[in-house]
Computed example of a mutant assay.
Amino acid sequence: MELKGLEVIYNNLSYMMWGNFPGGIFLTLLMSFAAIIVSTLLGILAGVGLTVLKGTVRYLLVGILGFLRAIPVIMLIFWTYFLLPVLLNVDVPAIATVICALSLIGAAYIGHSVHAGMIAVAKDQWQAAFSLGLTKKQVILFIILPQALKMMLPSFVNQWVSLIKDTSLAYIVGVAEFTFIATQVNNRSMVYPTEIFLFVIVVYFIICASLDFAVSILPKCRLFHSK
C-alpha cells in the first residue's frame, strides 16, 4: 500500500466505522448479529419441525425452506424491501428488511443442519428417554437437541460467516453498510481503490475470523460438557 492510500483510510476511518450513524462497520456488525440470532432461532424451530412433523404440514415446511434456499440472496432482500411494507401496511426501515431477508435465508440452511443433527442421534437414545417417562417435547429439548446443536456447530459457523458477508448486498436498498461506505470513500478519492478495498477485505476477515475463534472455544466451556 502507498502511504497516501493509508492516509486516505486513516482520514476516513471514523466515517467507515460509523457512517452517518448508524452505518459503516457498526451497521454491518449490527445487521450480522441480529441476522445470526434470528436465523438461528428460526432455524432450530424449522429443524425440529422437519424432524417431528408429518404429512402435509411437513411437505409445506420443506417447500418453504427449499424456496428460500433456491432464490438468490440479493433478490430476497430486494423483494422483502418492497413486500413487507405492503403486508404490514407500515413503513419498514430498509435495515429491518435486510435483517429479515438474511434471517430467512440463514434459517433455511440452519434448519436442514439441525434436522440432520437430530436424525444423526442414535435411535436408542430416543427409546431410552421415552422409557424413562419423558414426553416427546422433553426428549427433544433436553436430550436430542443439545447433542444435535453441538454436532452441527461447525455448519452453523459456516452459515453465520455467509450471513456476515451477505450484509454487503444491502446496498441494493440503499443501506449504508461497510462496503457501501467504502465505495463512497473510493468515489471521493478516485485514486486509491486498491488500498480502500484491501482494507475492506481485512476488516471482513477480522470479523469472520473472530467469530470462528469465539465459536471454536465454546466446546471447551463447561456449558458444553455433561456432568
Rank of each mutant, 00 (worst) to 15 (best):
V62R: 07
E7A: 14
K4S: 05
S103F: 09
L68G: 02
E177T: 07
F199C: 10
V121L: 01
A182I: 11
K227R: 07
Q147V: 12
L211E: 02
N11G: 09
V139F: 12
G47D: 15
I105R: 11
C100N: 06
A120G: 08
D124Y: 14
V185H: 09
C100E: 14
F205L: 15
I77N: 04
I44F: 09
L68T: 08
E2N: 04
G55I: 05
V185E: 10
S32M: 07
S226D: 13
L87M: 12
A120S: 15
V86C: 03
F199A: 06
I36D: 03
W160S: 00
H112K: 15
C221N: 03
S210R: 00
A101M: 11
T97V: 12
E2F: 04
L211F: 05
G19V: 07
L84G: 03
T194D: 08
L223W: 13
F130T: 15
T80H: 05
A176R: 08
L153I: 13
P193V: 10
S189N: 11
Y192R: 13
V185S: 02
R188K: 14
V8L: 07
V121Y: 09
F67L: 02
V98L: 03
V202Q: 03
V73Q: 02
V52R: 10
A116D: 11
T51Y: 04
D91K: 15
V92I: 10
G55M: 11
I37K: 11
A34P: 04
A209I: 03
K165A: 06
M1T: 12
L102Q: 06
K220G: 07
N20T: 11
S103G: 13
A129F: 09
F180S: 07
M151F: 10
A129P: 00
L6Y: 13
N158G: 12
L53Q: 01
L145G: 11
A101R: 01
V200C: 05
V157Y: 05
V92W: 02
V57M: 10
F142N: 07
V62N: 06
L88A: 11
A120Y: 15
G55C: 01
V191F: 11
A96H: 02
P22Q: 06
L42I: 11
G5R: 04
F142E: 06
Q138A: 14
G111L: 01
V161K: 04
G111T: 03
A170C: 00
G55K: 04
F82L: 14
S131T: 12
C208P: 06
M152K: 04
R222P: 01
Y109S: 06
R222Q: 09
V175W: 01
G106I: 02
F178K: 13
I77S: 00
K137D: 14
S189G: 08
A176K: 13
N158D: 07
L76P: 02
W79K: 04
V121M: 11
V203G: 03
D166S: 09
T28I: 11
G23E: 13
S189M: 07
P72S: 09
L65G: 01
L134K: 12
Y192W: 13
Q159I: 09
P22H: 01
A70V: 09
T28Q: 12
G47P: 05
L102M: 08
E177R: 12
R188F: 10
A148I: 05
K150A: 06
L134T: 13
V185C: 10
I206Y: 12
